[in-house]
């Protein structure tokens, strides 16, 4: 079939956008392993800059991983039961509560951080501990966990499953453990990957909440962009990509799977 002009135009737009998104990312990857960025690739490839990043920023990388895991645990403990309770009471009150906990998706992180700082900033033990940043991350990622689990629950006839478990003698907690959680697993998995991915990349809240002794990966990135030579900043970005891209791909795969189930 002969392609029309419109087809070629659409194709061109798509490719230009892809190039716009891809080219700088490749640049940063290359710059991170190039001996001297100004002289270009001819200066040779090196892992020197990545080694430098490791010396300077390994603590912030580990802090981010630790925060992401802690954030995941908290969102699981709070979010999964809450999603179940919301699914059980599909009334107006539940809609309002869901809307309210989703506020951190709509309100800029900066505003939320400002709110947290003003209420808890004077509690110095809390203010300077990693749990203060954790609160911010949980605030931002919790709605993703709740919605992801809720969508899967609402799509399956979980009430019938639960009622049949009840007629078979299962108590409320046993039903939750043996029927609800296993069947909500695709939603929990998609939610978990989203939580971890977003927590590792979170900057807006964290920048305001962090202390000089508690720098997360993205805070470290901002620091390197401002004060390090381009190669180090690029190498750090490369390390970040290496962590976040597989997570993102897993997240997209899991979300698509959960969505297929939810339909």
């Amino acid at each position: 079939m002969k392609r029309s002009l419109a087809w070629w135009l659409q194709c061109a737009v798509t490719l230009v956008i892809a190039a716009f998104l891809l080219v700088p990312a490749i640049q940063s990857i290359l710059a991170g392993v190039t001996a001297n960025y100004f002289r270009g690739l001819s200066s040779g490839l090196t892992l020197k800059w990545i080694g430098r990043v490791w010396e300077l920023y390994s603590a912030s990388i580990f802090l981010s991983l630790w925060l992401a895991i802690a954030c995941l645990v908290v969102t699981l403990v709070i979010g999964v039961p809450a999603a179940y309770a919301l699914a059980r009471n599909p009334g107006r009150l539940s809609r309002m509560l869901e809307e309210f906990i989703s506020l951190p998706l709509a309100i800029p992180g900066l505003a939320l951080a400002l709110a947290l700082l003003q209420l808890y900033g004077t509690l110095s033990g809390f203010r300077t501990s990693w749990t203060f940043i954790l609160v911010g991350h949980v605030l931002y990622t919790l709605p993703f966990m709740v919605r992801s689990v809720l969508a899967v629950l609402m799509a399956m006839d979980f009430r019938s499953l639960e009622e049949s478990a009840a007629t078979l003698g299962a108590s409320a907690f046993t039903r939750f453990r043996t029927v609800i959680v296993p069947n909500a697993m695709p939603g929990i998995l998609a939610g978990a990957l989203t939580v971890v991915t977003l927590s590792i990349g979170e900057f807006n809240l964290t920048w305001m909440l962090h202390t000089p002794y508690l720098k997360t990966l993205p805070v470290g990135l901002a620091d390197s962009y401002a004060s390090m030579r381009l190669e180090v900043a690029s190498a750090y970005t490369l390390v970040f990509f290496a962590m976040i891209v597989p997570l993102l791909m897993a997240m997209q795969w899991a979300s698509a799977r959960a969505q297929r189930i939810a339909q």
Binding site: M156, D157, S160, L161, E163, S164, A165, T167, L168, G169, V179, P182, N183, M185
Partner: peptide
Amino acid sequence: NVGMVFQSYALFPN
């Protein structure tokens, strides 16, 4: 201690 067969059968998919 009742046994119930549901309209949709409600078999546990897991």
